Amino acid sequence: MLTLIRNAAVYAPQFLGLRDVLFCEAKVLKIAPVIDLKHADLVTIIEANGRPLIPGLVDPLVHITGGGGEGGYHTRTPEMQLTDASLAGVTTLVAALGTDAISRSLNELVVKAKALTYEGLSVFCYTGSYEYPVKTLTGDITQDLVLLDNVIGVGEIAIADHRGSQLTAPELARVAAQSRVGGMLSGKGGIVFVHVGDGATGIQILHHIAQQSDIPLTQFYPTHMNRSQQLLEQGLEFARQGGVIDFTTSTNTQYLNEGEIAVVDAVHFAISQGINLSQISLSSDGNASLPVFNADGECIGIEMGKVSSLFEALVALINSGLPLEQVLPLVTSNAARVLKLKSKGGISETHDADFVLLTDNFNIDKVWSKGQLLVDEGNALKWGTFESQ
């Protein structure tokens, strides 16, 4: 069945003006000011009435199999479900392991990604976890990228964090080299997605590798860069040198009280420092644990990241006075570009039919993923296989 969205204010993510969008399944057939069809009875017509149509959001870090465990067995967070993403307008996401690569395995991650893809999303994976040596499925980073269709990089390997493996610059450089070659051979991003903790060294190791080896700074994609003012400023310097940094949208009151910079404030600060927003993305860290540690490094509390925080951050940025066209790439095209997800993060005849139709006050009305309507009038039309409706 053909679907025609008529008279939408299309943000692709750049503003195209009022347009009609015609698509069939995952394929966008035509975008034009007016599309006249002779056999309208064969077409599902959606009247947008001038409301914004944006690309489906791209989330470069979600723990789809859950995470956590820093406070013991009972603190393992649950798996993500289909509607956790779809109701939040997220149609493309990249899955990762974190601290726990013992009770959460790469086998489980890849299979869960395929399950969510079957249910309607587009889900990719990083091989590895916080740990070094990097755990892989085939026994080799390069082979994982070349032989496994939904594995697109390495992550989220941890630096500047007491939960990481305290790896050295030569060790991380070898990881990056293997991922780089795997990306080249497979046509994938081959990015090393880096978890940056609150350790004093920050991202110094990434600059050291770029200066002392043939690995460019752009091979690394560091996240949680709004963790503190000091780390934020390091991140902006990383961006000035051509790298792309990622801010985390899931947070809690204690994190903010301890110095984490709210995403809205971090983006405004980046703008004030002359940083091009094409060098910044946002991720939800959905279903990750948000552990709180005391001065002795003991876990004294835990909360969970939410995929929905990505769309909430977009709305907060708009409410802070920034234009939709300026901030939309932060949650769509920027991550897609870095990760080489060429059919994601935009609206064009070369992109998949991943759309979010907004209401006039920036709530979610409808969500299409690969042309399938998952959400209508803000309610789920499709649920995950084992979700309670």
Rank of each mutant, 00 (worst) to 15 (best):
G182F: 08
P52H: 03
H74W: 00
L2T: 03
A239Q: 09
D36T: 07
S272E: 11
F362H: 12
L106R: 02
K344L: 09
V267M: 10
Q212I: 01
K30D: 05
P329S: 13
I302Q: 11
A295D: 13
L148D: 01
F311M: 11
G56F: 04
V331C: 14
Q212P: 01
Y118Q: 13
N379L: 11
V367F: 06
Q178V: 00
V375L: 14
S165A: 15
L256I: 12
H207I: 00
T142D: 06
G378H: 13
L357Y: 04
E108I: 02
T201W: 13
A48M: 07
V58K: 05
C24I: 04
I215F: 07
Q326C: 13
N361Q: 13
T350M: 15
S179A: 15
T75M: 10
S272K: 13
L137T: 02
A336I: 02
K114C: 07
S348T: 05
V327W: 06
G384M: 09
D285M: 08
G235N: 08
G378K: 14
E303Q: 14
L330R: 04
S281V: 06
D140M: 04
D352W: 10
L217Q: 09
A9W: 07
T127A: 11
F362K: 09
N363L: 13
F15V: 03
D296N: 10
D36F: 11
K112M: 08
N257L: 12
G98M: 07
D198L: 08
A353P: 03
T99F: 14
M304F: 01
G384W: 04
L373I: 02
F362E: 05
G164Q: 07
M1Q: 03
L358N: 02
A316L: 11
L310T: 01
L29N: 02
K112Q: 09
D140G: 04
S278D: 14
Q219T: 10
A40Y: 09
I141S: 04
E237H: 15
F386M: 09
E258F: 07
Q204D: 14
D354Q: 13
D376H: 13
L328Y: 06
G187D: 10
P60C: 10
G202L: 07
Q234V: 04
R19V: 00
E47A: 12
G259H: 10
I141H: 06
H351Q: 12
T65P: 05
L4P: 01
S250C: 06
Q241T: 02
G164F: 07
S369M: 08
Q212C: 08
V154G: 04
S369P: 05
D352L: 15
G67H: 01
P323I: 06
E119H: 10
L339A: 03
L57I: 06
L16F: 08
G371K: 10
S250I: 00
G345A: 10
N379G: 08
G235M: 11
V315E: 09
L53D: 00
R6Q: 06
K370L: 08
D354F: 04
L310G: 00
E131R: 14
A96I: 09
Q230I: 01
K112Y: 05
K38Y: 08
S103H: 14
I275E: 12
V263D: 06
H195G: 02
T253R: 15
V21W: 04
